[in-house]
Write a protein that binds this DNA or RNA. Structure first.
Lengths: 182, 182
DNA sequence: GTCTATAGCCGGATAGAC
DNA sequence: GTCTATCCGGCTATAGAC
């Protein structure tokens, strides 16, 4: 009864992968559906068969990152040391989803998307609050902003391309804890 | 003999100011010349009178930041403690040119611009080298990347809007020195 | 210095053939 | 599931009137 042909969702995944690659090179506004289609060697209408709108593609590209954020928040909430678990979780997220995080965390089109989908925006705010801890002073607030903003860039910095995932992860976590204790 | 009417360059500055504001909200790709014209209450062709191409506008928006970078590099080179002077200079740059730095440092269109204008790209690389110092280890390289990427975000983080320039500057410099000594 | 008008191209999105 | 053809609107850029 399995359907060997046209396995559901495979086309979607190919579109999402191509979109992510192009988004990270040219930004969301700078990427047209035509480019995505060309990249896959298909027609523009074939892309529309998978996603009715461009926003739908953005949503699908972002989805796995937000899923992981939900897990991080759940883990941190279940832990005694919220701040440390959240910090490590964020570092893991950056490693596991380099391209999604780096390509989209500073994209103006994604910012607009988040303004229209407050459940997603709330996840980011919640993670921020966990890093801040209760009653943060000015220095801590700046340190958290610096760390959060920096994390996104580190993921795709070409100058760090020779550093393996494990080394990067452990140094990031260490630097994060260091910064947030400053 | 002064010419009270049509003071040279004033029109250009108004275009640049409007462009910067829109670039920071919508990104470069997401900003059309029509939007810039509308924002100034003039026609699209009036913008073309000041700048022959959109790239010309990008160049003019970036110019002051690169000028300041040149000064920072010159100052650091003349100093004994290159790394500290460069770090402080970068923090000052972020404060003085928040919008330019934040809006454009992660913009894919600007990245493409830099690939075509290697003199400008070289300034950024040179500053990076000054922060790294001679023979940096892995941890230092990651710290520099984290700091550089984070600086850009801090400048426009709405959550830090209540912090004055002076407080922000001194904390940033302090956090920078702290991070680079980690 | 700003305007209208227009060229020519490309954007997102849809309809319908195969 | 992919294609061609098409709609309509917006884009950069130019020409020329005022």
């Amino acid at each position: 009864m399995g359907k060997p042909k046209a396995p559901r969702g495979q086309g979607r995944e190919r579109v999402v992968a191509a979109a992510l690659e192009l988004f990270s090179e040219r930004g969301v506004s700078g990427t047209s559906l035509q480019m995505i289609a060309d990249h896959l060697g298909i027609g523009k209408a074939a892309v529309y068969y998978q996603f009715k709108t461009k926003e739908g593609i953005i949503e699908a590209v972002l989805a796995p990152a937000f899923e992981q954020m939900r897990r991080i928040i759940a883990d941190a909430e279940a832990s005694e040391s919220q701040q440390e678990v959240a910090t490590a979780g964020l570092c893991n997220l950056v490693i596991a989803q380099r391209e999604v995080v780096a390509a989209l965390s500073h994209d103006p089109e994604v910012r607009r998307f988040l303004e229209m989908h407050s459940e997603a925006a709330e996840l980011i705010l919640q993670l921020g609050r966990m890093l801040l801890g209760p009653e943060p002073d000015t220095r801590r607030r700046i340190a958290v902003s610096l760390f959060g903003g920096g994390l996104a860039s580190v993921g795709i910095d070409p100058q760090l391309a020779d550093i393996g995932d494990e080394a990067l992860r452990s140094e990031l976590i260490s630097l994060g804890q260091f910064l947030l204790k400053a």
